[in-house]
Amino acid sequence: MSKDLKYTDAFEELKQIVSDIEDGEISVDELSIKVKRASELIKVCKEKLTSTEEDVNQILKELENN
């Protein structure tokens, strides 16, 4: 799973999988793959809710350089 996956993308993909599953458009063969992917996406989204990656010092440095 890519670390660069934006939560917007992860969220959109998750919504798509859910609607596919709800509409019954996923066969039993694909089901386990899709469920696995969905749980990865959920994990990414949950992490995004509870973590930050920004660094104040980095921003201050950029401000000084501008």
Binding site: F11, I17, V18, E22, I42, K46
Partner: peptide
Amino acid sequence: SVPIKDAIKSI
């Protein structure tokens, strides 16, 4: 967050 919870339930 809520749609994600719903997604888990739904899936």
